[in-house]
Amino acid sequence: MGETGADFLIFNLHFGLPATSALMGVLLAGFLFVQVKAKRYIPWLYWMTVVMVSIVGTLITDNLTDNLGVPLEVSTIAFSALLVVAFWLWYSVEQSLSIHSIYTARRELFYWAAILFTFALGTAAGDLMAESVGLGYATSALIFGVVIALITTGFYAFKLNGVLAFWLAYIITRPLGASIGDWLSQDAANGGLGLGTVGTTAVFLAAILGLVGYLTVSHVDAPRLAENAA
């Protein structure tokens, strides 16, 4: 959604990269403020904040690439380093990276900083694999999907640490999503299926709304007191 949503605003609605970046930055700040101030988990608010972070993360990379001419190799390395620093600071201060221990504003801000860097990294790494390295969007998506499958196997079969497995998989979902978004939206001449940014964004948005609606009604992802105390 971050990849195609950003392209939809920039190209289809003709906002342009600078105006889109400014608008989405303001919206993210607003949703993030309300999210951190919320006293409980609210599915639509949390996931809307995730969508805003995904678009802004994509726009950060796009600005570096298109406006400043920063190579994707440099962006990928830089965001990887920033993500490592974010995790290091988070663990140094809070002694935990578990999402089940996020029940203070400071821990949540560490969490959102890490999420922002994962989205920016995902766009850079996805484009690097598909375009600069020349693997194409479908092949890149397959590679990232295999990596997530290996992480999953490590967790269930070889008792890989749960917090480590979660964050490794979470990080890889970002370039996976960017590659899938580009694969669906790009023209066949560019290795895509040609659905366009409008069609692809509509598909992703419908999926998000459906899933968030299900979570809101079912409460299957509602935090439990035992987890919050961990």
Rank of each mutant, 00 (worst) to 15 (best):
N190R: 07
L164M: 02
I60Q: 01
M48D: 14
Y170L: 11
L142M: 05
S98V: 02
L150A: 12
L184I: 03
G199E: 11
V147N: 10
G145T: 10
E131K: 14
A165H: 04
A226D: 15
S21I: 03
G57P: 01
H219M: 02
Y41T: 01
Y111H: 12
I60E: 13
G69E: 04
L121Y: 03
V26N: 00
N190E: 04
I143T: 01
F15R: 01
N63L: 11
T61Q: 10
N67L: 13
D182R: 12
W44L: 06
F204N: 10
A38V: 07
E73T: 09
N63M: 15
T20Y: 02
A189M: 09
V84Q: 05
D7F: 09
L27W: 01
Y103L: 14
Q35H: 09
T216L: 02
L13S: 08
Y91D: 09
M48A: 15
G192V: 02
G25V: 03
Q186S: 12
T61S: 14
L128C: 09
A189Q: 15
G196S: 15
T153K: 15
F158E: 05
P223N: 02
R174T: 11
D182V: 12
L72E: 02
L45H: 01
Q95A: 13
F166H: 04
A157T: 12
K159Q: 03
L209G: 08
F158V: 06
P175T: 02
A230H: 11
S75C: 04
S185R: 15
V198Q: 12
A19H: 12
G134T: 00
M129C: 08
H219V: 09
I10R: 09
L109E: 05
V51I: 09
R40G: 00
F87I: 08
L23I: 14
T20M: 12
G5R: 11
L9C: 06
V212H: 00
V85M: 04
F119T: 04
L164A: 08
I171S: 03
I208H: 03
D127Q: 06
G30L: 08
E73K: 10
G194N: 01
T197A: 09
N67G: 14
N161T: 09
L168R: 01
D66H: 07
V50I: 08
S21R: 04
L128M: 11
T200H: 09
S101H: 09
R174M: 12
T153E: 15
G134L: 05
W112M: 04
L27T: 02
V220S: 14
Y137T: 00
L89S: 15
V70P: 03
F8T: 13
G145A: 10
D7H: 10
Y111T: 12
G122C: 12
A105Y: 09
V84S: 08
V50T: 06
W90T: 06
A86I: 00
T152F: 13
L28R: 06
M52A: 14
P18M: 07
W112N: 04
A78E: 13
P175L: 00
S75T: 08
G196Q: 13
L28F: 00
A207C: 08
T153V: 07
A86W: 05
V212P: 02
G181L: 00
A222H: 11
G2P: 00
A141S: 10
D182L: 14
A138D: 14
V93H: 14
A138Q: 15
L225D: 13
A22N: 02
A6W: 07
V133Q: 00
S140D: 12
Y91H: 14
